[in-house]
């Protein structure tokens, strides 16, 4: 077994999971397919980059890394709220909301890319690796658990992303707000009758999903770069996962994220990076041909 492939697959799965769950959650709670998720992602990347440029001292310290990560997440939240403000609030009680909001989010991502291009220019912006200070503090770049050798950065990414995913999942299952969200997706009118405001709950969902995209941006952009079109690939990945997992099913999205992560790591190793997206779509075709509602649909049937 090639442990390098496994760890990189897990890292990818964790980060794609953040994106896919965001898209899935948005769809299931407010019925909007958020194609501006990539916009939020890119915005968060730029936010983190700005923070790293203006707020950081020369050698990266632990607090600085935290500031960068927080700046990214915060920009993500703001980005999500902006998308909600433009595409959700004015449209949610109009007829044909799913299609209208899809168009609106598409327009936001189209315009957003150009705005980034005009403000920040076409060049790639680097982000610091935020888990490096931890490794530096411990005076080692890598560590080993049995046969697995990992960089601090990778381990940190996996842990942070998984932690946030689990937190959000638990929160959706357990808390009052979480039950409100599920109530809203099952019967909007009933939800209104028990005092759940579709508007404020929807904005809350948008904010949370934006924050998840923000963390994903901070983690991913340290290996890749931030540029105006940085959101396109993550959006495609997120959509693939949401689709594969069955739109609206969060456990389905988790499984799908792991599947996609492994497919990507394996294809990248054996066939080269250009085939990864191709392989992922083939995977989606195969799953959807058997299960038209994705893995989530399968889970529902097993449960019933």
């Amino acid at each position: 077994m090639d442990w390098f492939v496994v760890t990189s697959a897990l890292a990818l799965a964790a980060m794609y999971g953040l994106l896919g769950i965001g898209i899935s959650l948005t769809w299931s709670s407010i019925g909007m397919l958020n194609l501006a998720h990539g916009f939020t992602f890119a915005a968060a990347g730029y936010g983190a980059w700005w923070a790293s440029k203006n707020l950081m001292s020369a050698p990266t310290s632990g607090t600085d890394a935290l500031i960068v990560a927080l700046a990214g997440i915060l920009t993500g939240v703001v980005g999500g709220l902006v998308v909600g403000l433009v595409a959700f609030l004015p449209l949610h009680d109009r007829p044909n909301f799913p299609i209208r909001s899809l168009i609106a989010t598409l327009a936001i991502s189209l315009a957003g890319t150009q705005i980034f291009l005009l403000t920040f220019g076409p060049l790639n912006k680097p982000l610091p690796k935020i888990f490096d200070p931890v490794g530096k503090a411990l005076d080692m770049r890598k560590f080993e658990i049995g046969p697995i050798e990992m960089t601090w950065d990778r381990a940190g990414s996996i842990v942070a992303a998984t932690l946030l995913c689990v937190l959000v999942l638990v929160w959706v299952r357990m808390s009052r707000r979480g039950i409100q969200m599920r109530a809203m997706m099952q019967n909007p009118e009933g939800a209104a009758l028990v005092g759940v405001s579709v508007r404020s709950t929807g904005m809350m969902v948008m904010g949370i999903c934006g924050g998840m995209a923000g963390l994903a941006a901070v983690l991913l952009s340290s290996t890749f770069f931030v540029n105006p079109a940085a959101g396109v690939q993550p959006l495609a990945k997120g959509l693939v996962i949401a689709l594969l997992g069955g739109l609206g099913s969060v456990p389905g999205a988790v499984i799908a994220a792991i599947l996609v992560g492994f497919t990507e790591a394996l294809t990248a190793k054996y066939f080269g990076t250009t085939t990864t997206l191709f392989a992922q779509y083939v995977l989606v075709f195969l799953v959807l041909a058997v299960r038209p509602r994705g893995i989530g649909g399968l889970l529902d049937e097993v449960r019933a």
């Binding site: 039950i179 409100q180 109530a183 019967n187 009933g190 939800a191 028990v194």
Partner: peptide, 15 residues
């Protein structure tokens, strides 16, 4: 009724 079909009776009442 406009109740929430996916939740339990208790969760519905709590809502």
């Amino acid at each position: 009724d406009a109740i929430f079909p996916g939740l339990t009776v208790q969760q519905n009442l709590d809502s």
